[in-house]
């Protein structure tokens, strides 16, 4: 028998962890999504496609099966809010990352440390901090009122905007870091050359800096988008539980609504969406590799 190499033995723990904690649970979810759900949670081992058809068709109040957009609406909302979050993160992150990359080495380390600092705090606590800032008579509202910038306004909390503030705040480090990494690698001589050749600043940014930073931007975009698609906390705490995102819908199916199969089929759907984005990214990088 061929002796298995170090590569195999070294990676064995990783394979084990991945298959036990990721592949196996996913297979279970896949399996449950094709079963019939039980009235009080759990599932019965009877094959059914009901949970998938439920995404598009639901029984109305007269028990007729009708095309129903309520779940598709949630999916669309999830995609839209996640996309918007990623775009805002990008707009904010790029100047920040660029600024950091132009500092002295010591300063860089310090600033990057500051960027990663929130990760040392539990996510629940961070989202709660946003609740405190945005709440009635919270830091933001009373501050703005103190400076006479606002009069009597409706609560800043419990709406889609509050949700987005929370999501941007939570995931922005995931955007700054990859963009920073790609700006760091940027050859500054190219920028000098551009200005020597009378390129204006805007043009340098557009035709030199941005294209060279594209891998970082795409990576950051995906790193922000993917966790946003599955977000649960922000809609619950900052959105007031009034508008759902896919993550909340799935959580509800396994909790309050006790419809495991439907929850599982939604999970499979979410997974497919995420996979699409990741495949797009993988396809891009492999193409880049071929080019170089």
């Amino acid at each position: 028998m061929k002796k298995l190499s170090w590569n195999f033995w070294g990676l064995l723990p990783a394979y084990l962890v991945m298959s036990l904690l990721m592949v196996l649970p996913l297979l279970i979810i896949f399996y449950v999504s094709f079963m019939t759900s039980d009235a009080y949670g759990g599932y019965k081992a009877i094959f059914s496609l009901q949970s998938y058809s439920q995404i598009f068709y639901t029984a109305d109040w007269d028990d007729n099966l009708v095309l129903n957009f309520q779940y598709l609406k949630i999916i669309a909302r999830t995609l839209f809010l996640s996309g918007a979050t990623a775009v805002i993160c990008l707009l904010v992150s790029f100047p920040v990352a660029y600024y950091i990359s132009r500092q002295s080495n010591n300063m860089k380390t310090f600033l990057l440390y500051l960027v990663t600092l929130p990760f040392w705090v539990s996510m629940v606590v961070r989202v709660y901090a946003c609740v405190l800032i945005l709440s009635n008579d919270g830091v933001l509202e009373s501050g703005l009122r103190f400076f006479g910038l606002i009069g009597d306004i409706d609560s800043l909390l419990y709406n889609n905007a509050a949700m987005m503030v929370g999501m941007v705040y939570t995931y922005i480090p995931l955007m700054i870091l990859p963009i920073y990494a790609s700006i760091e690698k940027l050859d500054t001589r190219l920028i000098e050359a551009a200005s020597d050749l009378y390129s204006c600043r805007m043009n340098t940014l557009r035709s030199i800096i941005l294209p060279l930073c594209k891998p970082g931007i795409v990576a950051g975009f995906i790193l922000v988008l993917v966790p946003c698609l599955g977000t649960v906390l922000e809609p619950m705490l900052l959105g007031g539980g009034k508008t759902m995102m896919l993550g909340n819908l799935i959580q509800n199916q396994f909790g309050v609504a006790r419809n495991w199969s439907f929850g599982a089929s939604l999970t499979v759907l979410l997974l497919c969406i995420v996979l699409l984005f990741l495949m797009f990214q993988a396809h891009r990088t492999s193409k880049l590799r071929e080019l170089s």
Binding site: G241, M244, V256
Partner: peptide, 17 residues
């Protein structure tokens, strides 16, 4: 009963969609 519970779940899911 399961059928009454289904209606409860239905109300709630539609409400919070």
């Amino acid at each position: 009963s399961p059928s009454a519970q289904k209606l409860v779940d239905k109300v709630w899911t539609q409400l919070l969609q």
